[in-house]
């Protein structure tokens, strides 16, 4: 038995946070990984037992999501974004260099057990391209050289801090945070840095700001009907069924049409 009672208690605690216990499965699997180093059979069976599910059901969930690993992970997870933008800006070159340097392929762990390398999809930091992650912390604006330095520091056990986040702990410790247990590192790193502040800095230089509430700036379109301009886009709700159908966001295209049509038929918007 590798799962201690404390872990079982914590798994039950997570299950108790939700209106329906099954909602806890994703964070529970994160906790299993933080303790076991991957999603183990015992971890799956324990989650199944607590949530009154079959092991097959839990396994089906665990295999769907890319963050859940079925083989033991290294101490650190190193991700290189190779989605289009980062790839073009240099992510492909960085990933090639790291595979070479670490002598591993994608989704493999170095012989010393220190680093698991993986190419990752867009991590929502495109203005910092090319982007890497260590244990899901950002390492922005990387080059092949900086990437090699980074992994060498990690392997040497040196203190490494994210370019916009906290001191790097370990992949397991990160998984524990994702399970919902805070680690006290929230106040490390800045609120924002570099590209995040680009527009704000330009606005400050130029003295630009949003209008003051109640100010007299008019809309960009010709019609400055103020209050009336707002109510014009309001639409009488149709039958609940029709309304619910329009609220569907499965298809951006059809939804945009749905959004436009009421404004058009209302007539008020015809002056532009």
């Amino acid at each position: 038995m590798s799962l201690h009672d404390t872990t079982r208690d914590e798994l039950r605690e997570i299950a108790g946070r939700y209106p329906e216990a099954r909602s806890a499965l994703l964070p529970m699997l994160h906790l299993v990984q933080s303790v076991e180093g991957c999603v183990t059979v015992e971890g799956i069976e324990t989650c199944a037992e607590i949530l009154d599910l079959s092991a097959a059901e839990v396994s089906g969930v665990a295999t769907f999501y890319t963050m859940y690993k079925r083989r033991p992970m290294g101490e650190h997870h190193v991700g290189v974004c190779t989605n289009t933008l980062c790839a073009v800006m240099g992510g492909d070159a960085i990933f090639e260099r790291l595979k070479d340097h670490l002598e591993v392929g994608n989704d493999e762990t170095t012989a010393d057990g220190k680093i698991s390398l993986e190419h990752i999809e867009c991590n929502a930091a495109c203005d910092f391209a090319p982007v890497m992650t260590v244990n899901w912390e950002f390492f922005d604006q990387q080059t092949p050289e900086s990437a090699v330095e980074l992994v060498d520091s990690l392997r040497a056990g040196e203190k490494v801090q994210s370019t916009r986040g906290a001191t790097i702990t370990s992949w397991r410790a990160a998984e524990r945070v994702l399970a919902g247990f805070e680690d006290g590192l929230v106040d490390e790193g800045p609120a924002a840095a570099g590209p995040t502040l680009a527009g704000l800095e330009i606005a400050r230089e130029k003295g630009w700001e949003a209008p003051a509430p109640g100010g007299g700036a008019g809309p960009r379109a010709a019609n400055g009907a103020d209050g009336a301009g707002g109510t014009k886009t309001a639409v009488a709700t149709e039958s609940p069924e029709q309304a619910a159908e329009e609220a569907d966001t499965s298809r951006a295209e059809s939804e945009t049409k749905a959004a436009e049509s009421p404004a058009d038929t209302k007539g008020g918007g015809s002056d532009d």
């Binding site: 109640g214 100010g215 809309p219 960009r220 019609n223 103020d226 301009g229 707002g230 886009t233 918007g269």
Partner: peptide, 11 residues
């Protein structure tokens, strides 16, 4: 709403 609508376009 007037403040919000003072930014952006008609629709």
């Amino acid at each position: 709403i007037d403040w919000f609508g003072s930014m952006g376009t008609e629709k």
